[in-house]
Design a binder for these strands. Structure first.
Length: 819
DNA sequence: GCCGTCTGTCATAGG
DNA sequence: AGCCTATGACAGACG
């Protein structure tokens, strides 16, 4: 473990720091637990790179794995692992299903949320939070309870609807699953009561409904993550939602009444007032009993409305994590004005500055989470798309695709549905959402009618900028600046500039295009670093293997000891001509020049230096590292051609090739080679010394030679490692630049998708609200009413005061939590 | 001769 | 304590 520790504290630490800079998570445990023989052996073995290696202890420890402990191949391996993980994470972006269920809620004449109208059929029973609507206080308590739950979820990074939030991600999950299970309507009994609008992200014509649901869900997922500062991984949500889903399923099976409030008892209660659509079988209120503000919007009307306005395609299921919909359309008397007033906060950026940094961090966290995600059924969605704009392809919202969603507005008691089932967290809602001018044709004609307290729980908070809430006026016409649009544009520009910068910083445009193709083609695998200047490692590896193979053959011809050394891959003390001569003369078992796997380290064959571009400039011919072959050719010309002159020249050459220590050893008549002196294990070394009668001077010299020789090798190894480290860092930088560029591209795509989604939601809200009519056939005043998502996925028409109340409550929550 | 690089060596720290 | 490795620093060799 010492070696492991060493490696981790040096190599991996460095590596991890680098990766952390881009948010790429490095989980050492995964490497350690992967139990891949080579890696495990290398890490856990005694000869890890950056590990102090004791030659004599290593002799019998290596078992022949290809990766030398000190080889940069090890780093390559880690790099490959990391890149592979990243590649696997590339397809984790998903498109969520979208679904909107709007419930028309009748209101107490007093504006209270009393349940004085049981006839409404929406008893708001059980867990929906709507059940007890005897008064605002109850509603508050209920909502607080759920808020507590919501907080728990939010602590996990999700602003997800609690318990019965069918319209939340849970719903999405269920939709996904139900669709796979062949279930008809994704929400089971829910559809009977719910109604309104649904829209679905367009899908390829061939795509099945279930597929579409998955995509839609994924899109919501993306939006969710994009907008919410997730503190936990996606799997947490999925799991929790699945848990909830399972719980709900259980409850359903058990006949529990606390499942979704609406489908169960609600349906019964509503039965009296519901008409059943002949085509869809869905129920919708035949009429709205009670209050003067009760809404009566026919299913057909809603359908027409949605078909006309909702371009989201068939089987649309509106994404519904939006907590509430509230709009500030003031003028009841001016339907056109109403339209104008329906400005989505989603499209406003004034609530809070668009924190690009935060977004980026969120994105990075998303990437990280997804990188950790191993199994994602929907993972392939994004990259199954044909090359091109993955978002436009997968997330595209077919503008002209009619929605076949049944639209029925159910009446329900007001209040009680305060739950902050916000698809978008407060910060999300604060995000300015770009909206095309076409989507912002509705400008409040009556600014005073705008509710100034639009809360985060209200969709109004999504659709209307703060200023509109209280100060919007006609001046904010179609020319109303598109905050998100500007923001997105700004973000995109920023990203683009960053990308350019990345390119300027060394990211080859060609590489970029290649990378782009890779991502677009879903190959994603960019393990090939051949285009990288630092890819010499590969060539190095090949040359290393060749050199090692040659070493094995040549070393096998020599002593077993030498072979053992060469197998260790250790940088040994090279023999020189003198050594050879002595060995031949004495028949001693010398240590052949080590044929390191690393040609750059072996230096024995100067020609091999050519394989190392960065060593080409090394022209020194140091005797220590002289290649035996070269020495042989120089030292051993054919006997027949030997002449006195040549012998003398040869001797001079050998003398020149000898190191100082070798000269000293020869002068002192040391009876064995420097190679032995240096490389023998201490025991054998002492044994060798004991075999000879050596003077103190000789012994001293021998020990100096040994010390210097070892130190020389150590210095060589040290420099090699240093060089390798630099090269690896260089490669890492290149990888990071590539990753950065890719992430920026993806971010742009996500922002684009997010903007589209918000625009859709906004337009849908506008249309739905604008079509709502009370029992007298008059439109609802945006200043008095707002649409809000209920916990069960339905959309309620509630008094704006209540919506504002909830909004304030929800706004407080994050603040309190931050304290 | 100067300069940069490579290499060997020493001293030292640490395993 | 002895041995070994790693590494900074220095100096010499070399182009």
């Amino acid at each position: 473990m010492l070696s492991l520790k060493k490696y981790l504290t040096e190599g991996l630490l460095q590596f991890t720091i680098l990766l952390s800079l881009i948010g790429v998570r490095v989980d050492v445990d995964t490497y350690l637990t992967s139990q891949l023989p080579p890696l495990r052996e290398i890490i856990l073995g005694p000869s890890s790179a950056y590990t102090q290696t004791q030659f004599h202890n290593l002799r019998n420890t290596l078992d022949g794995y290809g990766i030398h402990p000190k080889s940069i191949d090890l780093d390559n391996y880690f790099t490959a692992r990391r890149l592979l993980n990243q590649v696997r994470a590339l397809d984790r972006f998903q498109v969520p299903t979208t679904e909107v269920n709007a419930w028309l809620v009748h209101r107490d004449p007093e504006g209270s949320v009393s349940g004085s109208q049981p006839s409404s059929g929406l008893a708001l029973e059980s867990s929906s939070g709507l059940q007890d609507v005897t008064g605002p206080d109850n509603g508050v308590r209920e909502s607080e309870t759920e808020q507590g739950f919501s907080e728990d979820l939010e602590d996990l990074g999700a602003v997800a609807p609690p318990v019965s939030g069918d319209l939340t991600k849970e719903t999405m999950t269920r939709l996904d699953r139900s669709s796979h299970s062949g279930g008809g309507h994704a929400k089971g009994s829910r559809p009977l009561n719910s109604l309104v609008a649904g829209h679905r992200v367009a899908q390829p014509p061939s795509a099945s409904g279930s597929r579409a649901s998955v995509q839609d869900i994924d899109l919501i997922d993306i939006l969710w993550r994009q907008d919410i500062d997730l503190g936990a991984g996606r799997e947490i949500f999925d799991y929790s939602h699945r848990q909830k889903e399972q719980d709900v399923d259980k409850e359903l099976q058990d006949g529990a009444e606390q499942e979704d409030t609406w489908p169960g008892e609600g349906a019964e209660a509503l039965a009296r007032n519901l008409l059943v659509d002949g085509e869809t079988g869905e129920s919708f209120p035949a009429q709205v009993p009670g209050g003067e503000d009760q809404t009566a919007l026919s299913l057909e009307e809603c359908l027409r409305l949605l078909e006309a306005t909702c371009p989201f395609g068939e089987n649309a299921e509106f994404p519904a994590d939006i907590s509430s919909i509230t709009e500030a359309v003031p003028s009841e008397s001016e339907p056109p004005g109403l339209q104008n007033n329906l400005l989505s906060p989603l499209l406003t950026g004034t609530e809070s500055p668009f924190d690009l940094e935060q977004q980026w961090q969120d994105l990075m966290s998303i990437m990280e989470m997804q990188a950790m995600e191993v199994n994602t059924s929907t993972s392939e969605i994004l990259y199954n798309a044909p090359p091109g704009d993955p978002l436009s392809t997968n997330y595209s919202l077919a503008p002209n695709t009619p929605i076949n969603q049944n639209v029925s507005l159910h009446q329900a008691s007001l209040g009680g549905c305060s739950q902050d089932f916000s698809l978008f967290s407060p910060e999300v809602e604060s995000l300015p959402v770009a909206s095309s001018s076409t989507l912002l044709p509705l400008v409040p004609s009556n600014s005073t009618s705008l509710n100034s307290t639009f809360g985060s729980t209200n969709l109004s908070g999504l659709f209307f900028p703060p200023q509109l809430n209280g100060t919007a006026n006609d001046t904010a016409g179609p020319e109303l600046p598109d905050p998100l649009g500007g923001l997105l544009d700004e973000a995109m520009l920023d990203e683009i500039s960053l990308m350019d910068l990345a390119i300027e910083e060394g990211f080859n445009p060609v590489q970029a295009s290649q990378l782009e193709e890779e991502f677009d083609s879903d190959s994603g695998l960019s393990l090939d670093s051949s285009h990288s200047p630092s890819s010499l490692s590969s060539s190095e590896g090949s040359s290393s293997s060749s050199s090692s193979s040659s070493s094995s053959s040549s070393s096998s011809a020599s002593s077993s000891a030498s072979s053992s050394f060469s197998e260790e891959g250790a940088v040994g003390y090279s023999s020189d001509s003198e050594t050879l001569d002595l060995e031949e003369a004495e028949g001693a078992v010398g240590y052949q020049p080590e044929y390191s796997k690393f040609c750059r380290m072996s230096y024995q064959d100067p020609s091999q230096l050519s394989c190392l571009p960065y060593l080409e400039h090394v022209g020194h011919n140091h005797t220590y590292n002289m290649a035996p072959s070269a020495l042989d050719s120089a030292d051993l010309p054919p006997p027949s051609t030997l002449k006195k002159g040549s012998k003398e020249k040869q001797a001079d050459f050998l003398d020149k090739q000898m190191s100082r220590d070798e000269h000293r050893a020869r002068a002192m008549k040391i009876p064995f080679t420097n190679d032995k002196i240096i490389n023998l294990p201490v025991e054998e070394f002492n044994e060798l010394l004991s075999k000879y009668q050596l003077s103190e001077a000789q012994l001293s010299l021998i020990r100096d030679i040994r010390r210097r020789g070892k130190n020389k090798m150590a210095a060589q190894n040290c420099r090699k490692r240093k060089l390798d480290t630099i090269l690896n860092l260089e490669r890492d930088v290149e990888d990071l630049q590539r990753d950065k560029a890719r992430l920026l591209r993806e971010k742009v795509e996500f922002l684009r998708s997010l903007r589209q989604m918000k625009q859709k939601v906004q337009s849908l809200y506008q249309e739905v609200f604008g079509r709502l009519r009370d029992e007298n056939g008059r439109p609802y005043s945006p200043s008095q009413y707002a649409l809000q998502y209920a916990g069960d996925g339905s959309v309620l028409l509630i008094p704006r005061t209540l919506a504002d109340q909830q909004a304030r409550r929800q706004e407080r929550k994050p603040k309190d939590r931050r304290k």
